[in-house]
Design a protein around this nucleic acid. Structure first.
Lengths: 174, 174
DNA sequence: CCACCATTTCAGAAGTTATTGAAAGTGTAG
DNA sequence: CTACACTTTCAATAACTTCTGAAATGGTGG
């Protein structure tokens, strides 16, 4: 049977590979994996040691992960160091990644298509083919945007409801 | 008002940029864009000239696009050259890309998680955190797989129906 | 305001991926 | 079988991305 240490290594390695096949860099994905399976928040040094990478590298990638909103900083009283931990809810994590990609990729695409709709409408085959492609992609992008935005809202509702149901369980005591 | 030539260039450039932010390489995306807005199938040489890239590069990337099933080969009688054209239905294109990514990314992920479920279940915080992460990701991956597979089936049904409705319009004559 | 500890930045090094172009391979017509 | 017209491969190299580590910056307690 596989030992925990071996499992952790495999997990980190697998997540890194998956990350790079999405546009995410290997190290960023590995740091994310490490934090995901760490029960406690880790310092920069601990991440450096665990993955054998430099201080600068950890800093840069941890910052990106925080930009994506899937890793957070923890400050401990009487300690100047920063400790990092990952969002542990995998659905929420996936949703945040989707949200970020929608913003970074879909929105610019829609913007460019809007510009391209300004192309002079010529009745040449070339002109028509371009106009059709732009129209179709614009339409598609808007639909995709709607679907993803709806999913985002559903998730945040679901999240809010979970949160409220937890609150309800506590409140009756007061 | 923007001219057609300027529009084509912008379109190709935009698609290339988008492609690279997804894991697709720039040139592959640009060739796809070029074929998408070309009313006729293009030869290797025509693609080389239009994008200013080498023969080998065109060959490799056109082949990848055909692997994804979004570009096809056309043979003209009495001509030894191969001509390439893109699938013009943007929804079908998107679906084929999804299908391919599901196969290439989600399936390997599920496989690795299945392996990792074999990790010895220890009651240490480390062991528990790993077990939870593996379980959650496995569950999520299966759900995502189901959603995407369902979408694939819906599209192929929709496609079949479109196809059948075209057939129906023709058949009554026979 | 200084000393200290931690974070951030960034230029150069290392590593990775894409591209070229020429050589090898393929298949067909004569 | 050979010449030809194309396609495919692949080693060298170019382009790009990531990583390092040391220096600059930031912020806190004394």
């Amino acid at each position: 049977m596989m030992q925990v240490q071996e499992g952790r290594d495999k997990f980190i390695q697998a997540w890194g590979t998956l990350g790079s096949s999405w546009g995410i860099n290997r190290t960023m994905a590995q740091i994310h994996a490490l934090l995901l399976i760490s029960p406690i928040a880790l310092s920069t040094e601990e991440i450096m040691d665990a993955l054998g990478i430099s201080r600068g590298n950890v800093n840069m990638n941890v910052r990106s992960l925080m930009d994506w909103g899937i890793v957070h900083k923890e400050l401990r009283p009487g300690d100047r160091k920063e400790y990092f931990y990952a969002e542990k809810d995998i659905y929420l994590t996936a949703m945040k990644i989707m949200r970020e990609r929608r913003k970074r990729e879909l929105e610019p695409l829609i913007e460019i298509m809007t510009q391209l709709k300004q192309v002079e409408k010529l009745d040449t085959p070339e002109g028509q083919a371009l106009t059709k492609a732009v129209h179709d992609i614009d339409h598609f992008a808007h639909q995709a945007d709607t679907v993803l935005t709806t999913m985002e809202k559903m998730t945040s509702n679901w999240f809010t409801q979970q949160f409220l149901s937890v609150i309800k369980k506590i409140k009756p005591l007061g």
